[in-house]
Amino acid sequence: MASFQLRFSGTGGQGMMLIGDLMAHYYGLKKDKQIVLLKSYGPEARGGACRSELIVDDHQCYPAITSPDFLLCMSKQSYDLYTKDINESTIILIDEELVSEVDDKHNSIYKIPLTNIAKEKTGKTICANIVALGAITKILNLDHDVMLEVLKEKLPSKILDINLFAFEEGFKYLEN
């Protein structure tokens, strides 16, 4: 099946659900794809590792990840838990300060101090997920301007500017 499967994982409070929403909005409403967005719910969403998962397809999606094409890990625990079903071409993005030790077998891994960038550039670590979104946009070669539109449509106005800034910092990071 030719679906594109993405997983965004971290710890509760890092905004992993929001990344899922924004990416679903991008693919589903801006790029005319079929999407399925899955979030951890109930007891499994309380504390500890959490994730949202997005399946993108031209046709109705099979609603589960078989093996992710893209994986974001923003905590050690989520890296340990959610790398079990990856394959050799899975693209991995980690917060390099929060996920200290990684397997050296990954073919395609990006290590970025996402939380640190958020802290230094915006003053708010909570923007780390949007820094990640900027990096993802670069890594997956997504449409930068369309992603900006998504942010403008989905985020409340009072936190928009700081997040647009965070997004650009993440996007720029890999250009350096």
């Binding site: 679903a24 079929q34 999407i35 899955l38 589960a64």
Partner: peptide, 9 residues
């Protein structure tokens, strides 16, 4: 439960 919690367009 899957259909209940998953989002689609």
């Amino acid at each position: 439960a899957v259909l209940a919690h998953m989002s689609e367009k």
